[in-house]
Simulated scan of single mutants.
Amino acid sequence: MSEHVITPDQRPGPQNKRTRSRGGKAKRQDPAEVRRRLVTAATQRFASHGFEGVNSNQIARDAGVGVGTFYRHFQDKREVHQAVVLETLEALQNRVAQSARAPGASVQDQVRDLVEAVVGFAEEIPAQFRVAFGGDGTAGLGARTQRSPLSGATPGRAQVAYSTRATARRLAELQAQGVLDPRLDPGVAARAFVGMQNSVLCWWLEDPTRATREAMIETLIVLHPAIAAANSKVT
């Protein structure tokens, strides 16, 4: 579905930013609230229909505003898609940071906290998670990918690269301590695990009856490179 574009002289003037109160007086809408409604509407649309199945008219209508208001906040649907992705990444990083245990915790406990934080985050905002990590904004491992506004990569790939840095750093630290197999490349391992984890979570969010929550968590813990590589080193 093609993106509807209007020229600057077609966009409604400032008077259209106002709504009428009960007394008939013009009431200015809060720009931050309007932007939030647009991002929320876009999230639901992208999650349900994929990136190519959405246009700015639909997002504006779902948010209860005119298309001119949409263009005051975002240049096009790619920009609002980027806003959804960046907000999701920031929120996920905050969640993971809050879940971290005090220094000295075992590797097993650290990995469990990390996995439980990510799974819980995905459960709380499934549509947003799928848009950020589900390929073209829809869940499923076989979903068709589209070009992303982030670094020119397909949606999901740039997000994986952005979200693997902390994992790669931690794996490098554990390797330096002699905990992990020295053959492990921290960057490769982090990218492989995070990409797999996000894809599997999107698949699971489509239909949570495919596996229990406990099975998801325990399996991801076993597959985490900090656990798998440590076990490999022992054996």
Rank of each mutant, 00 (worst) to 15 (best):
Ala230Asn: 04
Arg210Tyr: 04
Arg130Asn: 06
Leu201Thr: 03
Val118Met: 12
Val65Asp: 03
Gly68Gln: 10
Pro12Asn: 10
Ala230Asp: 07
Thr88Asn: 13
Gln146Tyr: 14
Ser21Glu: 11
Gly23Trp: 06
Asp207Gly: 04
Gly152Val: 08
Asp185Gly: 06
Ala143Gln: 14
Gly50Met: 09
Leu86Met: 14
Pro149Leu: 05
Ala63Gln: 03
Asp30Val: 06
Asn198Arg: 12
Val131Pro: 09
Ala192His: 08
Phe46Ser: 05
Glu123Asn: 01
Gly23Ser: 13
Phe51Tyr: 15
Phe129Met: 05
Thr19Trp: 05
Arg35Ser: 13
Asn94Ala: 15
Pro208Glu: 09
Val84Gln: 05
Ala26Gln: 10
Gly135Glu: 09
Ala63Tyr: 03
Ala83Lys: 09
Glu214Phe: 05
Gly13Tyr: 02
Val115Asn: 08
Gln82Asn: 12
Pro182Lys: 05
Met196Cys: 00
Asn198Met: 12
Phe193His: 13
Val96Phe: 05
Val39Tyr: 04
Gln10Met: 13
Gln159Asn: 14
Ala228Pro: 01
Ile227Asp: 00
Gly64Lys: 05
Gly24Arg: 01
Asp136Ala: 15
Arg95Met: 05
Gln146Gly: 08
Thr145His: 12
Ala105Leu: 03
Val65Gly: 05
Arg28Ala: 14
Gln93Phe: 04
Thr154Glu: 13
Gly137Thr: 08
Gln10Thr: 04
Glu124Ala: 15
Gly53Gln: 06
Pro8Arg: 13
Arg22Cys: 00
Ala166Gln: 12
Ile217Met: 04
Gly156Val: 07
Arg183Cys: 01
Lys27Gln: 14
His4Tyr: 10
Val85Ile: 15
Val118Lys: 11
Lys77Cys: 10
Val84Pro: 06
Gly156Leu: 06
Thr219Gly: 12
Pro155Gly: 03
Pro208Val: 12
Val34His: 01
Gln175Ser: 12
Ala226Leu: 03
Phe74Cys: 09
Gln159Ser: 15
Ala42Leu: 02
Pro186His: 07
Gly53Val: 09
Arg35Ala: 14
Val39Asp: 06
Arg191Ser: 11
Arg78Asn: 14
Lys17Gly: 11
Arg183Gln: 13
Val200Trp: 11
Ala176His: 10
Thr69Ser: 13
Ala161Trp: 03
Trp204Leu: 11
Asp30Tyr: 11
Glu116Phe: 00
Ile59Ser: 08
Glu90Gly: 09
Gln146Lys: 11
Arg191Met: 10
Gly13Pro: 07
Ala189Ser: 11
Gln159Cys: 11
Leu141Thr: 12
Ser48Pro: 01
Leu171Met: 12
Pro12Asp: 15
Glu33Ser: 14
Ala26Tyr: 09
Gln110Ile: 00
Gln15Lys: 15
Lys77Phe: 10
Trp204Asn: 08
Gly187Ile: 02
Thr209Phe: 02
Leu141Ser: 15
Gly13Gln: 12
Val234Asn: 08
Ser48Leu: 15
Arg101Ser: 14
Ala102His: 08
Ile6Asn: 00
Ser151Pro: 00
Ala190Cys: 07
Phe46Glu: 04
Phe193Val: 01
